[in-house]
């Protein structure tokens, strides 16, 4: 389910891999971010055990503040929202939902994007040119704008929001994989492999793929954070997950009404999004640095 540990599945090239780990480990900030991220992932996986209540269950206490407030109630650690739902449970389930959605989005867009990228890189120049123009155009446009327009056309709601964000992310993967492959194709070792008589698929899986993996991994983490941000932005604008889904952006947009009365229902879900994004970005930065050192 979680795409994060993909690079563990590359035992063929332990040398490179262990060097990455080593240089990544030097970056203390990135390592601690990774730990935070792992904790968030664990929370997401074990949400039903961690959350004290059902995220949609409604209790008597409406808009009860977090327990450290004077009028707080220790039954609800982070308080309740305006319908009396436990905010902590909603945020925990929100982690599950957000990470799940982002994973689906990244899987869809990475699969299609990388396939298209390989196709364009390995086929004739015309297709390459056309797809390149198209991706350039889409990349120039603000991705949230495109996602909003797509959702507007096919209708708001969770599945449509996923498609919209996935479509918007595809061009990034196309461009990154295409450029990486083109870059590798010009190198001597590829020519050598071709001269050795390797066919196209072997050339790709054995020679090119391992070498473009670093850029793809960095792109994956980047896409993951973009996906989380955009799904929650769509949720905030009322175009993504619909209530009572405990999606972070949706929770925020619901609680905006209560900003003057129950500010914690605004600050806490935002903190959840923020910490998740921050840790992913830090890990991404760390990975990029680690892999750059490699070159």
């Amino acid at each position: 389910m979680i795409n994060q540990p993909q690079f563990y599945r590359q035992p063929e090239i332990p040398g490179t891999f262990s060097r990455w780990v080593k240089s990544f480990n030097k970056n203390k900030l990135a390592v601690s971010a990774l730990i935070v991220l792992l904790v968030i992932i664990l929370i997401a996986i074990f949400a039903p055990w961690i959350a004290p209540y059902d995220p949609t269950a409604q209790f008597e206490e409406l808009s009860s503040p977090p327990y450290w407030y004077d009028s707080g109630n220790s039954k609800y650690i982070l308080g309740t929202d305006d319908l009396g739902r436990d905010l902590f449970s909603r945020l925990v389930y929100g982690a599950r939902l957000s990470l799940k959605l982002a994973t689906i989005v990244v899987l869809i867009s990475a699969t299609i994007g990388i396939l298209l990228g390989c196709m364009t890189a390995l086929t004739n120049i015309w297709i390459d040119n056309i797809i390149l123009r198209l991706t350039d155009l889409i990349l120039a446009l603000p991705s949230l704008l495109l996602a909003i327009v797509i959702v507007a056309l096919i209708g708001p709601g969770l599945p449509n929001a996923i498609y919209a964000v996935a479509i918007v992310l595809i061009p990034h993967f196309v461009l990154v994989s295409r450029n990486a492959i083109k870059h590798e194709l010009n190198k001597d070792y590829v020519t050598a492999t071709i001269l050795d008589g390797a066919n196209k698929s072997r050339l790709f899986t054995h020679s090119i793929l391992p070498n473009i993996l670093p850029s793809l991994i960095v792109q994956l983490t980047l896409a993951f954070s973009t996906a989380i941000l955009e799904i929650s932005a769509l949720g905030f604008l009322g175009l993504g997950a619909q209530p009572p889904h405990p999606e972070w952006g949706t929770i925020l947009s619901e609680s905006y009404v209560y900003i003057t009365i129950a500010p914690w229902t605004v600050t806490l879900p935002g903190l959840a999004i923020f910490f998740t994004l921050l840790s992913i970005n830090l890990v991404g930065d760390g990975l990029r640095d680690a892999m750059d050192l490699e070159k």
Partner: peptide, 25 residues
């Protein structure tokens, strides 16, 4: 550098609400 990273990861809709909460309200 770490502050910029924080700013970079800020979901803008939340940031906007926070500033309104603080400076305006």
């Amino acid at each position: 550098v770490s502050t910029t990273l924080v700013g970079y990861s800020m979901p803008i809709f939340w940031w906007g609400m926070l500033l309104v909460l603080l400076f305006s309200l």
